[in-house]
Amino acid sequence: MSPSHLVDDETTVNVARAALFAALTGAFALVSVTVPVTSIPFTLQVLGVFLAGILLGPVWGGAAMVLYLAAGAVGAPVFQGGSAGIGILLGGAPSFGYLWSFPLAAVVIGYLVHGSTEVRRPSSVSPARLVVAMVVGTIVIYAFGALGFMYVQDVGPEAAVLAGVVPFVPAEILKLLAALGIVRSDVLHAG
């Protein structure tokens, strides 16, 4: 038996937080809310991606989304509507492109919000900066998402955008506003 190499304090806390945000994203994947007027239901996963990037920063926000994918791959019901499995990440379901974009999107959002790998208090970041970060993150997610949709569903770019992007634009705006409200409300104290 070899001596135990303890995980240091800071890493332990960060692993716990990353797992918690991954689980939160999974819990949000089950919440379906209907956008008024269009009556298209959407889930809140992307809100989890936003919050991971904003609250945990680029490194651990990205790590949280990697854990999200890993847990889903081995059967945690965290993907859209409570689905799971390695098959989905290998292109088995139309959500495949969106899912793979989450770690990258969280890193991008985290980096744009905090300006470095150092995590700042999110309520001290200007709203404009938060909005830009989330808009760029959303573009990353939907670009990957549409490509994945074309591949999995064997459709052209127009159908992919019509089925996989357009219906969700109003919902993304909603989530973005909600995330902004959460971060600015200062009920959270990161770090």
Partner: peptide, 12 residues
């Protein structure tokens, strides 16, 4: 980390 996600998921 994945095991902890399983652990937190039902709570959340």
């Amino acid at each position: 980390g994945a095991a902890f996600v399983f652990r937190f998921l039902p709570v959340l």
